[in-house]
């Protein structure tokens, strides 16, 4: 399998001198195209910090992150923003949909940021909204949708620019168990392809069985654990 994300000896600390606290300490791992990778761990274990560093949002203090062979932290700020825009899709924990835009316009946002013509962006966004089964809700504002529907809108927005890497932060945190599983089934069935790597940060054990691999973080360090091992715990 081709390596999608390559993290090597990544460190992140806050404060200096005696006050220095490590959020992530010497983490190295690979994620592959066609893989659904979970990053799990208790609160404060550093998984969100790690996720931010591998997605080009938070600069590591030490170490290297390569995505599809590109050392992302060597890119200038604008190029890095462009890289995120074209290569990485995000689904935030609280969705962060725009309540003043329609559902369709929300999905089209990444394409609009890519300076695609408005009508083309909306037409393309409508196709992805159909993929997540919400084509009939296109003209509604997100606040009129249920939590599960909003999650699917956020997924459609993350997918619309055809990213190779999809990052989902606690995708089931605000969903009930059945809806959470439905969403993960959908991601596994419809979104995961051989050309895409999906990384999910979660501590919702109800959805662990959808992962290809699960890596666990604790106190800023990372250890890889096979899914079967975790299930057995």
């Amino acid at each position: 399998m081709k390596v999608a994300i390559e993290a090597r000896d990544v460190h992140k600390w806050f404060g200096e001198g005696d006050a220095r606290t490590y959020a992530v300490k010497g983490v190295s791992f690979d994620a592959y195209f066609g893989e659904l990778l979970y990053v799990v761990g208790p609160s404060g274990s550093g998984k969100t910090t790690m996720l931010s560093m591998i997605s080009g949002i938070l600069r590591p203090d030490q170490g290297q992150v390569r995505i599809d062979g590109t050392d992302i932290w060597s890119l200038p700020d604008d190029d890095l923003a462009d890289f995120r825009l074209h290569k990485i899709g995000f689904v935030f924990q609280d969705f962060h949909l725009f309540p003043r835009l329609t559902t369709l316009e929300n999905v089209a946002v990444p394409l609009i940021l890519q300076e695609r013509p408005w009508d083309d962006a909306l037409a393309e966004a409508r196709r992805d909204l159909d993929v997540v089964g919400l084509g009939h809700r296109a003209d509604l504002p997100p606040v009129k949708l249920s939590g599960g529907e909003q999650q699917r809108v956020a997924i459609a927005r993350a997918l619309v620019s055809r990213p190779e890497i999809l990052i989902l932060d606690e995708p089931t945190a605000s969903l009930d168990g059945d809806t959470g599983r439905t969403i993960l089934e959908f991601i596994r069935r419809e979104i995961l392809t051989e050309q895409r790597c999906i990384v999910i940060v979660t501590h919702d054990s109800r959805i662990f069985d959808f992962a290809d691999r699960i890596v666990q973080m604790e106190d800023g360090r990372l250890k890889s654990i096979e899914r079967e091992t975790l299930d057995a715990q």
Binding site: D77, A81, D82, R84, H86, F98, P110, L113
Partner: peptide, 16 residues
């Protein structure tokens, strides 16, 4: 502000 932050995360540049 969170929406602007989300735009920034998605890939909006500062000048946008």
């Amino acid at each position: 502000i969170e929406k602007f932050g989300a735009l920034k995360a998605i890939g909006a540049k500062g000048r946008d």
